[in-house]
Write a protein that binds this DNA or RNA. Structure first.
Lengths: 149, 149
DNA sequence: ACAAGAATCTCGCTGAGCGAGATAATAGCC
DNA sequence: GGCTATTATCTCGCTCAGCGAGATTCTTGT
């Protein structure tokens, strides 16, 4: 396989799309005075909350690729900005649960809502088989990127 | 539209996939002692080179969302590591062309090659209509994420 | 109770990226 | 052809994100 092979067209398109999504998040970060990592953290927290899962400081940092010191600093920043609250876990009091503030959720929704709406709109035109193809492709890429490499 | 709406399933999957791809790049960065931004820069440079375009310091920095000072520092780092060369543009001698070193290309290919191979493999099972759906979706997302918001 | 282990935090430090302004080269104007 | 405005990059000084090492607090198994 060589970089100019035509079968790589979709790979390049995927990469370009990921880059564009990254810049979109960066604009949100700049607009709200946050750092890219803070935005990634908020997204992870909102996603966990959506899935009904509790998020601890440790798991959050691990998910973002930070060590414990960096994680503490991250949560400090988010807490100082009023975007999250620290809550000691009832069961295991060593753990710190990080809860997102409702206003932070609203802020994120305000920025990402239009994009999400446009993507949902996009999906309208596809039938079940096409949607299955898109879903299968994304899942495949996610698995291919995860784990060993 | 609310965060738990079922039509958002694919949006969440897309986000999860992007996160996983980001972590994959981060592992490459850690392995080669580079910073995430350096990796993004190398990818941008390799892509421009693949497309047969010259890349100037300014356009590189703009593409990554850096200001001029940060761009200079970035190119300094990459040059010091031997990944790129600075070349004054022949036509307009204010411009600095940034050229990727062949060994950096090989290094990147070594890390991203397996992932790319797996994605190409993935695409094998789809027929033309399904591939068109995937392509259309990615292009749509890229456009939705770009520009105003 | 007590040792071993787990989750987080503190401290000191390195270095990425920013703002402001300097420098060098080009382009437009009369 | 010089003179000014503009463009591209670089320099300087600074702030703050994230790291390594180790301290602290809480849990669990014996």
């Amino acid at each position: 396989m060589r970089p100019q092979d035509p079968e790589l067209e979709l790979v390049h398109l995927l990469r370009a799309t990921v880059v564009e999504l990254g810049l979109h998040s960066a604009r949100f970060a700049a607009r709200t005075g946050m750092h890219p990592t803070d935005v990634r953290a908020l997204i992870a927290l909102m996603d966990a909350s959506r899935a009904g899962e509790e998020m601890t400081a440790g798991r959050l940092g691990a998910g973002l690729g930070l060590n414990s010191a960096g994680t503490t600093a991250l949560v400090d920043r988010l807490e100082r900005a009023g975007h999250v609250r620290r809550v000691r876990a009832a069961g295991d009091r060593r753990k710190v649960l990080v809860e997102v503030d409702e206003r932070a959720v609203a802020l994120g929704w305000e920025h990402f809502g239009p994009l999400i709406g446009r993507v949902v709109e996009l999906l309208r035109v596809y039938d079940e088989r096409e949607l299955a193809a898109i879903r299968g492709f994304l899942e495949g890429v996610r698995e291919a990127a995860g784990g060993e490499d």
